[in-house]
Design a protein around this nucleic acid. Sequence first.
DNA 1: CCTTGACCTGAAGTCAGGTTTAGGTTCTAT
DNA 2: ATAGAACCTAAACCTGACTTCAGGTCAAGG
Lengths: 160, 160
Amino acid sequence: MQMYTIGQMSDMFQIPISTLRYYDREGLFPGLERTSGIRKFSEKEAEALRVIDCLKRSGLEIREIKTFMEWCAEGSSTYKQRRDLFVRQEEAVREEMRRLEKTLAMIRYKQWYYEQAIKDGTEDRVRQIAPEEMPEDIRPLYELAFEDMKTDRKQTEKDS
Amino acid sequence: MQMYTIGQMSDMFQIPISTLRYYDREGLFPGLERTSGIRKFSEKEAEALRVIDCLKRSGLEIREIKTFMEWCAEGSSTYKQRRDLFVRQEEAVREEMRRLEKTLAMIRYKQWYYEQAIKDGTEDRVRQIAPEEMPEDIRPLYELAFEDMKTDRKQTEKDS
DNA sequence: CCTTGACCTGAAGTCAGGTTTAGGTTCTAT
DNA sequence: ATAGAACCTAAACCTGACTTCAGGTCAAGG
């Protein structure tokens, strides 16, 4: 079975050696082999790194990823827990994607806004434009970006 | 013109008072008014908070957002810089969304993987399945999640 | 009057996720 | 067999984005 040194892993995954050691310290490679102190990485740890990256991007912290890796080391008794984790993280990622869609809408609206300001030499006109008067392609951006602002107007007072 | 106290802003935006003061300290509200030391927030700062949230999600740091807010305070001479910033951040957000798409593909592949493992009582079979043998709806997930792994096989040696 | 609640400040503390440092050990090629 | 490259550890340090703390001001109501 192919084995790799920490330096080879670092090159292959473009991750600093110090980070790989940090991950090991945090318990992200349970059962990592060593020969006379030197770490021997295998395809198992390579796959772990891919999963670490995935779970990190999905919003998990290192400590939670450690828990997952421990489940992996425990074997078949934890399949359901592992599947359920991926189900939860799917929802987390989808929510983050919705937030990014709104962010993107705001960004594109602002691009248009400043294009207008540049053309006019001032923001005075564009600032006054109501959604209904905006170009077809801009209005939906505005609506999405600012959607939680129509209704929420006076939610500051009496909500019990 | 409607003015708000820091407490009202905190309620309206669901942001801790300590964070609003921190943002002020970091220069995110240039030209914020005060009467005898007490901050008076207006629609201007409300809009600033929406933009702060947007720019933060797009990946900017507080210091960079401060620069943007200073441009806003400088007036019409900075419209182009502000537009260009939003153009750059659009690209940043799109890239993050692509990464999340890959993350999601990996997550959904893993869900399927563990479903199989649960059915079989072991990972032994599912681990062996080549992309070509995977169900129609799973293969594309696998391909997307692991796409940088077919070609990159031996990029460790000689790349000049 | 005097207490209570909402505001203020500067400085220190926290937390996650690494990175750097200092001092050693092991491998590999000549 | 020896130099240099690549590895090791523990512990300190770093950064960003807040949060908490200790102590103080100020306006309004009982």
